[in-house]
Simulated assay, not measured.
Amino acid sequence: MSPTKPIRRVTLFKIPAEEDQQKVLAIYKEMPDKAKRDGQPYILSLAAGPTIEDQRNQGYTIAVISIFASEDDMKYYDNECEAHAALKKVAKPLLQGMMMVYFESIFD
């Protein structure tokens, strides 16, 4: 992977109860301001929302697209970010499944 291309991350959650989905989405809404590295926001872009009902969604109820400047920033998010740790604490007990992939766009 090239250190100059942004990392795009797609995360899907299976959280059946709409009330629980809203709890997780409320945390994501604050994530761009709360997630900081060296005192500065470091997530370049974040979009999250409930999936639209469709047979192809395979039961995933929330979709999130995060963009990081580097794979290192994404790893920081996974392993050290306090805001992400708070999200995981709320989301983990609600999950009935999750999937995450990340990539560099071939169009950049």
Rank of each mutant, 00 (worst) to 15 (best):
K5H: 08
R9K: 12
T51F: 04
Q40N: 09
E71Q: 14
C81H: 07
A86L: 07
R56T: 04
P50N: 13
P3D: 09
Y77F: 14
I7P: 01
L44Y: 01
Y102M: 03
A91H: 00
A91K: 00
R9W: 11
L12R: 05
S105D: 11
I62H: 01
D108I: 11
I67W: 01
T51K: 05
K29R: 10
K5F: 06
F107W: 11
D72M: 10
H84K: 11
P93W: 05
R9T: 10
S66V: 02
A85K: 12
E71A: 15
I65S: 02
T61S: 13
K89F: 04
Q21K: 15
L46W: 01
K89G: 03
M1R: 14
A63K: 07
E30N: 12
P93A: 03
Y28F: 15
A35T: 02
L44I: 03
M74L: 14
K23I: 08
Y60A: 06
Q22P: 00
D33M: 10
G59K: 05
I106W: 07
P16K: 02
Q22C: 05
L94R: 00
E53Y: 05
I7M: 09
Y60P: 05
V64K: 06
I106R: 11
K23M: 11
E53H: 09
A85T: 12
I65G: 03
L12F: 07
F107N: 13
A26Y: 07
I67Y: 00
Y76L: 02
Y77E: 11
I15A: 01
I52R: 12
A26Q: 12
T4S: 13
I43P: 01
L12H: 06
K92L: 13
S70N: 06
P93Q: 03
S105H: 09
L12D: 07
D20N: 15
K29A: 15
A91E: 00
R56S: 13
D78G: 14
H84I: 02
M98T: 13
I106G: 06
P6A: 02
D20F: 02
M100R: 13
D54N: 12
A69H: 01
V10Y: 13
P3K: 07
L94F: 00
D38T: 07
K89M: 06
K14W: 01
A35H: 01
Y77P: 06
P6Y: 00
Y60L: 05
G59H: 04
M31F: 05
M1I: 08
E30Y: 05
S45A: 14
K75T: 09
M1V: 08
M74H: 05
I62G: 00
F13M: 10
E30S: 14
A48M: 05
P16N: 10
D54I: 00
E80I: 04
K23E: 07
S66M: 08
N79Q: 14
P16S: 10
D20G: 11
I27R: 09
